[in-house]
Design a protein around this nucleic acid. Structure first.
Length: 333
DNA sequence: CAGACCAA
DNA sequence: TTGGTCTGT
């Protein structure tokens, strides 16, 4: 779905300066952690690790990105996934299989000395497991940054919080939060806009997609957007082979969703997936509060247990209190 | 990804 | 100020 919707979004989005963004941002925690784990690695693919072998790539990413967002006056809240719907199981199994294969290909690339291939395969083998999630939550708590446990999909919970007005926008690289009804989605929420693409470094700005404008731009309703997602494929079903964004948009606008599903996928009932996007399990059981970081606790964790340089950690922590208060006029804590 | 450092 | 390279754990 990601690629297909990106094509449709091309003319219906706006790039924004990070400084123009303010307020509370509900960040898709799984999406952020996965990115950190896949990208923050040594050239041969080895992730950053403490001396005793615990992976720390996600903690590095989380610390510095959160510090930067806070310094810019944004208030992040991280939303963690809960129990996935049963119809996601096939996708989950497939992804595990792909990761396992990539892990083997990583070892093989190292054996033959292909460093670039090793990095690529290592990235693809990245897995957000329980210890990654646990240490991420522990760090956020020490940083004084709230996190929310979603009952089901994190993107659905983030969208619900945005719709309620608890947060100003959802943050993810995926488009799912729009299908879940988030009024605003921000992608590429990074500070240094540099990104390596095919060897070259290009500048990437945050990208804001406003749901109502997006739907107007495409001439569809939110239900129609969900139908497009189902046709091109979602986390819950592969969709119809050969149908991309353009074709899906045409079919949905022509009211042919049901008929083309009946014709091409007679065994498939899209109703539960449609219902899941339009009315997902969400929770009101959250409380958003930001507090100054527990400086000693963060250093104890990151430097004491994970071998981070205390100087680097302290430098990041400074962005949470001093500068943040200087930069924002309104009371922050 | 983000920070540190260096060169143009 | 911008862009490149190296490093972080």
């Amino acid at each position: 779905m990601g690629v297909a919707l990106r094509d449709l979004a091309a003319d219906c989005r706006e790039t924004v300066d990070l400084d123009a963004l303010s307020g509370i941002a509900a960040i898709d925690a799984h999406n952020a952690l996965y990115q950190f784990l896949s990208i923050i690695r040594q050239p041969d693919g080895t992730p950053l690790m403490s001396a005793d072998g615990q992976i720390t790539s996600h903690l590095t990413g989380l610390l510095f990105r959160t510090a930067n967002l806070v310094e810019k006056g944004l208030r992040p809240v991280y939303v963690f996934d809960g129990t996935p719907p049963t119809f996601k199981q096939e996708t989950i199994d497939q992804r595990r299989e792909v990761r396992t294969r990539a892990g083997n290909a990583w070892k093989e690339a190292l054996r033959v000395g292909d460093i670039a291939e090793a990095y690529k395969q290592a990235s693809a083998s990245a897995r957000v497991d329980a210890s990654i999630i646990g240490t991420a939550q522990e760090l956020l708590t020490l940083l004084g940054i709230p996190w929310v446990q979603a009952p089901s999909e994190g993107e659905a919970q983030a969208a619900y919080m945005a719709r309620k007005g608890s947060v100003r926008f959802a943050v993810s690289q995926d488009y799912d939060s729009l299908l879940f009804g988030s009024p605003v989605l921000v992608r590429n929420l990074t500070v240094s806009g540099r990104r390596k693409m095919r060897g070259r470094t290009i500048t990437v700005s945050p990208e804001r997609i406003v749901l109502d404008a997006f739907l107007d731009c495409l001439g569809i309703t939110r239900e129609g957007l969900v139908e497009i997602g189902i046709l091109v494929g979602t986390d819950y079903h592969p969709g119809i082979k050969g149908v991309g964004g353009k074709t899906a948009l045409k079919l949905v606008r022509g009211g042919e969703f049901e008929s083309v599903i009946a014709e091409r996928l007679p065994e498939f009932d899209p109703a539960p997936i449609k219902e899941f996007f339009l009315n997902p399990p969400v929770s009101d059981d959250y409380h958003l509060a930001w507090s100054p970081p527990d400086t000693a606790g963060v250093i104890e964790m990151l430097s004491g247990r994970f071998d981070f340089s205390p100087e680097r950690v302290e430098g990041a922590l400074e962005k949470f209190s001093v500068k943040a208060r200087q930069k924002t006029l309104d009371q922050w804590f």
